[in-house]
C-alpha cells in the first residue's frame, strides 16, 4: 500500500488581523501551520498503513520553510516528505498549482512506486478554493471523492474502497476502485498522539527537495505568467459604521428593540 498526501503550509487564518488604516493584513507573528484538514488526511493514510503495511509519502509545494509542515507529517507517522520548491512556481493559481503537483506526484511514483491512495484536505484555510485536489485527480484521470467523512472499507486485494462523503443533503456512500483521490473533512477521524519514536525519527529525517531541475515539467504551465486567473486587486472589506447603541433602562431598551422589529411582526397565528 502506498498513500500520497498533498499538504499545504498556511498562515493560521484565524489569527490574521486587519489594519483598517492601511487596508492590509497584519501577518506579523501569525504562525504558519499545517492546513488543519490535511492533518486528518495524514492521520487517515497512516491508519491504513498501520492496518495493511506499506508507506505514506507526503508532497507539498512551497518555500523552503514548508519543510516544517512536512516534518510535522512525519511526526504523525508518514514515512517520507517531498518539497516541491522552485521560483518558477511563484504566483501559481490553482490550475498551475495542480499541474506542478501532478508532475511532482509523477516523479514520486517514479521514485517510490505506484500510488493507491491520494489524499488532500477539502480546502486550504488561506485560499479556501477547494480546487487543487480535484485538479490533480482530473489530471491523473482517477476517481475523485471530495468531502470524505468516513473510509468504511479498504480492500486491497480486490482493489476497491467503500467511502462516505458529505453532500448538500446529508451523506452518500460510494464504492470506488483504487487508485482513488480523496479530499477530506475534519470529521473523518480523531487525531491520535504521536509516540515518541515517531517524533525522534521525524526530527532526524531529511526532506527531499524537488524542483524544475529534477522534475520533468513544462515550464510554460508554471507560475504566475502561466496562470489563467490574475488577481487584479486585493483589499480589506469595507468597514461598516457602528450603528446606534440603544440606551436607557432594561425595559426601555426592550421597548425600543420591539419598535424596531415590529414591522416584521407576523400577524397571522
Amino acid at each position: 500500500m502506498h498513500a500520497l498526501v498533498f499538504i499545504k503550509q498556511v498562515p493560521d487564518a484565524s489569527q490574521v488581523r486587519i489594519n483598517y488604516e492601511t487596508g492590509t493584513l497584519i501577518r506579523e507573528g501569525v504562525p504558519a501551520i499545517l492546513n488543519p484538514y490535511e492533518v486528518h488526511a495524514v492521520e487517515e493514510a497512516v491508519k491504513i498503513k498501520q492496518k495493511f503495511g506499506g508507506k505514506v509519502t507526503i508532497l507539498t509545494m512551497g518555500p523552503l520553510q514548508a519543510a516544517d509542515a512536512l516534518k510535522e507529517c512525519l511526526s504523525r507517522g508518514a514515512d517520507k516528505g517531498y518539497l516541491l520548491s522552485d521560483r518558477i512556481f511563484a504566483g501559481s493559481d490553482t490550475l498551475a498549482t495542480s499541474y506542478a503537483l501532478y508532475e511532482g506526484a509523477k516523479k514520486i511514483i517514479e521514485l517510490e512506486g505506484e500510488i493507491d491512495f491520494f489524499f488532500a484536505g477539502k480546502q486550504a484555510i488561506d485560499g479556501d478554493t477547494a480546487q487543487t485536489g480535484p485538479g490533480i485527480a482530473t489530471r491523473f484521470n482517477i476517481p475523485l471523492v471530495t468531502y470524505l467523512t468516513k473510509l468504511d472499507e479498504v480492500n486491497l486485494e480486490e482493489k476497491y474502497v467503500v467511502a462516505t462523503r458529505l453532500t448538500e443533503f446529508g451523506q452518500e456512500t460510494l464504492k470506488v476502485p483504487i487508485p482513488v483521490f480523496f479530499t477530506v473533512e475534519e470529521s473523518l477521524n480523531i487525531l491520535s498522539h504521536s509516540p515518541l519514536p515517531w517524533l525522534v525519527k521525524a526530527a532526524q529525517s531529511k526532506i527531499e527537495i524537488l524542483s524544475g531541475e529534477n522534475v520533468d515539467l513544462d515550464k510554460n504551465q508554471c507560475g504566475l505568467r502561466n496562470s489563467p486567473t490574475i488577481v487584479k486587486k486585493a483589499f480589506t472589506p469595507e468597514k461598516k459604521q457602528r450603528g446606534a447603541t440603544l440606551t436607557g433602562t432594561f425595559d426601555e431598551v426592550v421597548d425600543q428593540a420591539a419598535e424596531k422589529v415590529a414591522p416584521f411582526l407576523n400577524n397571522i397565528l
Binding site: V16, I18, L25, V231, K233, F235
Partner: peptide, 8 residues
C-alpha cells in the same frame, strides 16, 4: 483568508 481579505 477566512474573510479578512477580498480579492478581485
Amino acid at each position: 483568508f477566512g474573510g479578512s481579505l477580498m480579492a478581485t
